[in-house]
Computed example of a mutant assay.
Amino acid sequence: MELFSRSWGALLAGVEGLSDADFARDCGCRGWLVRDLVCHLVIDAQDVLITLVTPARGQATADAVSYWDVAGHPPDGEDPLDALIVRLAAAYGDPGLLRFHLDDVGSAAGRAAELADPALRVRTQDKVLTVADYLTAYVLEWTLHHLDLIAHLPEAPPPPPEGLARSRALLEQIAGFAFPASFTDRDALLVGTGRRAPTPGEQAELGVHGARLPLVLG
């Protein structure tokens, strides 16, 4: 629960620290500008709020690992929601309006997470899981998107190291293998999710596991 708050707070602070010009830069999500990513984060924050007030009966059907679906190919921009996000982000016009909307909804999502009962079962995407597992899954979401946010902003603060470490551990559980010890947490996440290609040396270290990458999470 605390790691969710720390990761989300760092990501919100990262967006707050952007200049207006930064919103027109490319981000780490293929085909998206920073403003598109920030708009996506608004929708993510709304999803957190909705899920935390959607209690579920019965046993959990997923945890922080099985919450994630692994796709066979990266997004191509044809998904209706992806296309909507790009149009919606452009409609804001003034980056300040988008920044304000994320701060408003994002702060509410953060407060809701802090107040939630970790043992409560909630429903989202036809899955039932505890609040603790749901928020743990979102540590990976926030960490990856923090890396996306700063992909072309080398001076921007990175995600918290404990969030990077927990996200790597989650990704390794999803993948079913551990990345080589020589990989930093950041590199494991970037290479593992296809945000950058492995170097020849990294590919050699991955061995047979390299054929299973990237893991496109959804």
Rank of each mutant, 00 (worst) to 15 (best):
F4T: 08
S5Q: 15
W8T: 11
W8N: 11
L12H: 10
L18Q: 09
L18M: 13
F23Q: 10
C27R: 10
C29Y: 10
R30W: 03
R35T: 12
V38F: 10
C39V: 07
V53K: 14
G58Q: 09
Q59T: 13
Q59G: 04
D63K: 01
S66T: 15
W68N: 04
D69K: 13
D69S: 14
V70M: 08
A71W: 09
H73C: 09
D79C: 08
P80L: 07
D82A: 14
D82L: 12
A83F: 05
A83M: 05
R87W: 08
P95Y: 09
P95H: 11
H101R: 15
D103W: 06
D103I: 05
D104W: 12
D104K: 11
V105R: 07
A108R: 15
A112V: 05
A112D: 09
A113D: 08
A113G: 13
L115S: 15
L115T: 13
V122F: 06
R123M: 13
T124N: 13
Q125F: 14
Q125D: 14
D126Y: 11
L129N: 03
T130S: 15
A132E: 10
A132V: 02
D133R: 02
W142T: 08
W142S: 12
L149P: 04
L149K: 09
A151I: 01
H152V: 06
E155H: 11
P158D: 11
P160H: 03
P160I: 01
P161C: 00
P161I: 00
E162L: 03
G163N: 00
G163Y: 00
A165E: 08
R166L: 10
R168F: 03
L170W: 00
A175H: 03
G176F: 06
A181L: 08
T184L: 00
T184P: 02
R186P: 00
R186H: 02
G194S: 07
G194V: 04
R195K: 13
R196Q: 12
A197I: 02
G201C: 02
Q203R: 14
E205W: 01
H209W: 12
A211Y: 12
R212A: 13
L215G: 03
L215S: 05
